[in-house]
Amino acid sequence: MPLFDPITSPQNPRIKNLLKLQQKSAERRAQGLTIIEGLRELTIARGAGIEVTALFVCPDLAGAARQQELRQLVAGSATEWFEVSKAVFEKVAYREGSDGVLALVKPPVLTLEQLPLPAAPLLLVLEAVEKPGNLGAILRTADAAQATAVIVCDPRTDLFNPNAIRSSIGCSFTVPTIATTRAELLAWCRKHGIRTYAAALTELAVPYTTCNFRGPTALVMGTEADGLTPELRQACDQTIIIPMRGAIDSLNVSTATAILTFEAVRQREA
């Protein structure tokens, strides 16, 4: 494992590049890299086969035991290892109480046509998702439910935004995640006989518990602010609702997605 002199200046070019990658999706796309902070998240990513190009470790925060775990995690790879002073690390860490571990990784790039499909796939479809926290929470749900994939139509945030990775606790890498367009998604679902269920409050919507999610299923969710676009909602096979009992008329999109997803899991296991 290549080792380098400790980084003690925030003006170091590698530190400047880390900040660029954190803040700019265009930079992440151009370099084909993203950032994972935290040993737990990195361990999950490595378990999914993710390549780590560089580690930035603060010995004062990471401690000896955690550094030993890191060495085992990337043993046999060409991962570069940089020690970083506490003052510099705190400038690049993007969460409170960091454990002193930052990794540069190559995220996977997957298309719809490359996605292996079981006989009855369960797909979580998000339209124009813009909040990394919501995307991360939905990826955790997808991992827990062993959904086939998360598909994002016309995303407003990149799929491997560091904050999405943090919110997913590394599940960004355990669930196939694909960015596509609305038109491509609909054509692909028709081609593979996947029934689409749009979560939307319309006159024709039915309670989600009345639907049969045992076959090839795509649960289609919109943004919290605007919901689904009329074009996607109308193109889906069925609109569904989660009946609201109180004063509020909707749920957080990640909560709603979890409810629908585990209803599909319940039906499939019944």
Results as ranks from 00 to 15, higher is better:
Ser254Pro: 06
Ala199His: 12
Phe56Trp: 12
Cys211Asn: 12
Arg190Ile: 08
Ile194Asp: 03
Ala256Asp: 05
Gln238Val: 15
Leu21Ala: 05
Val109His: 12
Leu21Arg: 09
Asp5Tyr: 11
Arg266Gln: 09
Ser254Asn: 11
Thr255Met: 13
Asn161Asp: 11
Ala128Arg: 15
Ala235His: 09
Ser9Arg: 07
Ile35Asp: 08
Val175Thr: 06
Pro121Ala: 04
Arg266Ser: 03
Glu127Trp: 06
Glu96Phe: 07
Ala48Pro: 02
Leu126Gln: 06
His192Arg: 14
Ala54Asp: 09
Ser25Val: 12
Gly227Pro: 02
Leu126Ile: 00
Glu184His: 14
Thr217His: 00
Ala270Asp: 13
Thr177Lys: 07
Val57Lys: 11
Leu123Pro: 04
Gly222Trp: 05
Thr217Arg: 00
Gln31Asn: 11
Leu70Ile: 02
Val220Asp: 00
Arg214Cys: 14
Thr148Trp: 00
Pro116His: 05
Ile242Met: 02
Ala93Trp: 00
Asp99His: 07
Thr217Gln: 01
Asp5Trp: 10
Ile248Glu: 15
Ile44Arg: 14
Pro6Asp: 03
Val175Pro: 00
Ala93Glu: 03
Thr141Pro: 04
Thr157Pro: 05
Arg71Leu: 12
Leu260Ala: 08
Arg66Ala: 05
Phe262Lys: 13
Thr43Pro: 04
Arg14Ser: 10
Ala87Tyr: 05
Pro121Ser: 06
Ala62Leu: 02
Glu96Asn: 07
Val253Met: 09
Leu70His: 06
Ala235Trp: 03
Leu185Arg: 08
Leu219Ser: 04
Thr34Trp: 04
Gln22His: 12
Thr79Lys: 09
Arg166Tyr: 01
Arg233Trp: 02
Thr177Leu: 12
Lys91Pro: 09
Ile241Ala: 02
Ala258Lys: 11
Tyr197Gly: 10
His192Val: 05
Arg14Met: 10
Gly136Tyr: 07
Thr111Val: 09
Ala147His: 08
Ala93Lys: 05
Met221Phe: 15
Ile138Cys: 03
Ile248Pro: 08
Cys189Tyr: 06
Leu3Glu: 12
Pro107Trp: 02
Cys211Ser: 15
